[in-house]
Structure formats: C-alpha cells, structure tokens
Nucleic acid binder design. Structure first.
Lengths: 120, 120
DNA sequence: TCAATTAGGCACCTTGAGGTAACTAGGTTA
DNA sequence: TAACCTAGTTACCTCAAGGTGCCTAATTGA
C-alpha cells in the first residue's frame, strides 16, 4: 500500500493535501482545469462548455485558481471584451496526479454505485 | 500531459471523478482514510487522533464511507462498547492515486502559499 | 459513591457554497 | 432604432456542511 502522511504535529493545520483539496475539491475547479487542458479558453466559452455553472461562481473560481497559480488570465483590449484563461505549468502538472485519481474513479465507479444502492 | 476527460454528454452528470470527489473531497474523509491506513481504529481513537473533528461529523462521515464501501465497521458486544473501523480493499486501493496527489501537494505547497500571499 | 469511558443520538445554530436575476459598457448587427 | 454579445458585478435566497452542547447505558476504577 502507498504510505501516506496527512497529520502533522499541529493536528492537520497547514497540511498541504488539505490545502489543495480545499481549493480543487469543490464543485467546479477540477472541471475547469480539465477543460483548460484541452486548449486556452475564453470566459463564455468555458461557461458554455461546462453548461450548468453559474456566471457568478465561474468568475469566482477562476479568480481563485488564478490567485493560487493554477491558471493565467489574459485580457485583450477589444470590444466586446476578450479574456482568455490558460493553464500554468503548475496547473498542467497537477493534472498528472489528478489523472490517476480519475482513472481510479472510472474503474471503481460501478462498484461504488453498487454499494450505495444496497442501503438506499 | 496526462489526457483526462471529465465531461460526458449529459454535461458532467453521473461523472465518476465528480462522484468520488464529492465523497472524499470534504473536510475529513481523506484524513480518516489515511489514519485507518495505519491500522484498524476504534471510534474514540479516531476522534482523538484527528483532534479537531466533532463527534457528530465523525459519525456521519464514517457511515457514508462505510456505505460506499471504503471502510468496514465491526461492533463487539462489550461494555463499554467497542467498534472498530478498517479499510476495505477498495479503501486501500484509492490511497494509491490519493498518495500521488499528496506527493504533488507537498512538492507544490510552498509555491501555492507564495502565490497566495502576493495578492493578499 | 462518584467519576470516567464507550459509541453514538438529537436539537440548535452559523457559515459558506452555490444558484438566480438584474444590471453595466461599448461596439456589432438587423 | 433596437437587440445582441462580451465579461463581469451586485443583491438576494437556499441548502448542506460542520460545530456545540446535552443526553444515554453498562461497566470499571478510585
């Protein structure tokens, strides 16, 4: 088994994985990163691709991802406005471990749904 | 770059990774799985090890993890009560991709905190 | 006798995540 | 002239996550 450590002396405070999960473990961040991994994407294009995200939340999550260094925001001085989002090196690199988790999820999804339905 | 897919035709509904993240992406699940990976653990021992989790939430999360098949719950008919939680095969196996994410988080935590402080 | 321990259950409260709808500005199109 | 598109912002609402505090029942130790 993979040996992992999450708790430190301060009782899980300042723990890297919890910090990362806090950011990309929400409803939309991971999805946005994956969409951006296909190609740099404009705001409304992101919105249309994802489909069911609200404008307010998309704005907010993009701001947060930019602030943490996962993505870049490039505004072109045109009218109508044009703003393009893209992955940074860090944003690209996180998709490797995330990809492993996605693979696991796909392999085990049927079993999880099966377990779940037993006690519904 | 790792090639990943998250969106399906139904617009991210019934998507394995989002389903998994919904469960283990909360504040405590991952931590519980990691603690259990050390050894089978009793309820109050889990509570003490984690430290700052409330009893109510620990009960709830353990129930959910059991229902989905990540952990087992074994009650011994003693007094005072004794209930031991342990990882299932599935619970063990998810720690491999999760471990990769933890490694990534540890390597990049300094950079993330650096980025964050720039705009605080 | 009194306190502690065990694994919870239950009522109540706060906070934040996320949704909806309406508004903006400048330029393009019908 | 009127409507549309862009990338947001703001006010308002709802719901779920998570926290606190108090309760239990049998048994052990001081």
């Amino acid at each position: 088994m993979h040996k992992v450590t999450v708790l430190d002396k301060k009782g899980a405070l300042d723990c890297p994985i919890r910090d990362v999960i806090n950011r990309i473990g929400d409803k939309w961040s991971l999805l946005i990163l994956v969409v951006l991994s296909e190609q740099p994407t404009r705001f409304n294009e992101l919105k249309r691709t994802i489909g069911d995200i609200s404008q307010k939340v998309l704005t907010k999550v993009l701001k947060e991802l930019e602030q943490e260094g996962y993505i870049t925001r490039t505004a072109y001085d045109e009218s109508p406005p044009k703003v393009v989002y893209d992955l940074t090196e860090m944003g690209i690199s996180v998709l490797t471990p995330v990809g492993h988790l996605i693979d696991w999820a796909e392999k085990n999804h049927a079993m999880i749904k099966g377990n779940r339905s037993k006690t519904d």
